[in-house]
Design a protein around this nucleic acid. Structure first.
Lengths: 273, 273
DNA sequence: ATAATAGTGTCTATTAGACAGTATGGG
DNA sequence: CCCATACTGTCTAATAGACACTATTAT
């Protein structure tokens, strides 16, 4: 590395910012007409009122036919991911804007949120060159009732993921939702994101049903074998009460079940081992 | 889904684009001052002239002290990732711009390239609100000689990844490079990206050394056990010649070695299995 | 008692992983 | 023959995965 430092003396090592900024003309390049964040908000809830089968669902908003001024709204009447423009006046990043939007939808902070892609094709939005940062979030269903109650001006609906693609979707949101779905299925298998769907303390059966409803049966043992295997998984542990005894609860059965919790252990499975 | 479709009659189902665009005023929001792509170009090559130990290296460019007009250049004298502004006049996306830049650096098309993050903090660049799309690429070292030869106006250098963080780095490129390094280590373990460092046909030892030099010994068996295990890996297969016999080659030893190739099988290792 | 969920027992086959040993061929 | 690399043998312990079986308790 010595030859690198040899080319200039110390006091002219770097250009000073104030010298450089005088000469910079940003207008040589076309700049985006808009910079937005969109969020695919996932939850798991029963398929319908009768069934107790849990399925993955996605929250969508029906775009209003008319905007605030009473004029026709762009892509009005179609279903879209919640999202909006990034408030750069308040020094927002795409992630911060997504967090803000997510709080507006759910009323709570601290929800799991992951950036998974950028959609920047020049004609993806007829209003101009509008760049979307795509995120997905995982929310317990109870928090989504908040939004339905707090703002009935817009139609908000939870759709089973399999129903989503038969809806009329705004902009390129079909592509974005497909990518979000692929991403969450992968993460469900390779990361501990399953915990975002579960309470702090959960039963092995609850965990098993989350994995199966998002990914597939291939991702996990049969329920019976999973019980035996669970004790070897490094990233979950039994939930203990103040006396050090394993906590139990009744969930789906009459027999009390042991409760587990995720710990902070990170796992990475190598394809070469 | 029936109640969704009940709210409006068919011929006013969606707003027509031409009606909506008349009312849209994009200037309500601050727009970015620049939209760029940066690329962390990785290669593997011998640590130094003496050693035959292979290490992961990163290509960096030393920013010129003066710009084309002979004025002081922003962040001049510091090392930076190759990259530049997205050419929206030519309908480029961030990915296309990265591909273009990568071709400029290497002279060839079709190199592995992956988008892994967006850096959009409002003050990450003193010139204004300039958004960077970060990618990483994997190139065989031989293609990087091209760039050194084709443009000696700029200083281009390959650094061992461990040396990079003692350099003066422009903008927030230290953060971006750290993230790129974490990402490639993870991908090396969980995906078949290792193939991008290797020729079409390679020996098991070559593959083994790639994994170890990027990830760690934990990601893979010992060299001896890996040989036995290799035949059970779904995503590699023996390279056959036209007579259906396994091809061999001499690489590091006198004894000829079997050649392997990656096939198209995708693997996802579940943490729950 | 029954039903429903929560586990456990048990068996066979395969895999993990350490370590030592054999194979090849240029010098 | 020596050496470096490329494998292969072999052993023990652990895991995979199928399937049958037991456990608990509200009804």
């Amino acid at each position: 590395m010595k030859q690198i430092w040899g080319v200039c003396t110390l006091d002219e090592e770097f250009v000073k910012r104030e010298d450089a900024l005088k000469n910079y003309n940003v207008s040589d390049y076309k700049t985006p007409d808009g910079y937005t964040s969109d969020i695919a908000i996932f939850t798991i809830s029963p398929k319908d009122d009768q069934s107790q089968e849990q399925v993955l669902k996605l929250l969508l908003i029906k775009r209003a036919m008319k905007n605030a001024e009473g004029e026709p709204n762009i892509e009005g009447g179609k279903w879209a991911l919640p999202g909006g423009f990034i408030d750069a006046h308040n020094k927002e990043t795409a992630m911060m804007a997504a967090e803000r939007e997510l709080k507006e939808e759910t009323g709570i902070d601290g929800i799991f949120l992951k950036h998974f892609g950028v959609y920047d094709e020049i004609d993806r939005d007829p209003r101009g060159w509008i760049i979307s940062n795509a995120h997905y979030a995982v929310v317990n269903e109870k928090h989504l009732i908040y939004r339905k109650a707090s703002d009935d001006a817009q139609e908000v609906e939870l759709f089973s993921i399999d129903d989503v693609f038969s809806l009329p979707l705004a902009f390129d949101h079909e592509r974005i939702i497909k990518d979000a779905y692929e991403m969450i299925k992968e993460d469900m298998i390779q990361t501990t994101v399953a915990k975002e769907f579960l309470p702090e303390e959960f039963t092995l059966s609850e965990l098993w049903h989350v994995i199966v409803s998002v990914a597939s049966h291939d991702a996990i043992e049969t329920n019976a074998n999973f019980h035996r295997k669970a004790r070897n998984l490094k990233f979950i542990e039994e939930a203990l009460d103040e006396n050090g005894k394993v906590k139990t609860a009744k969930r789906f059965s009459k027999k009390p079940t042991k409760l587990y919790r995720f710990n902070d252990v990170q796992v990475l499975k190598s394809i070469y081992r």
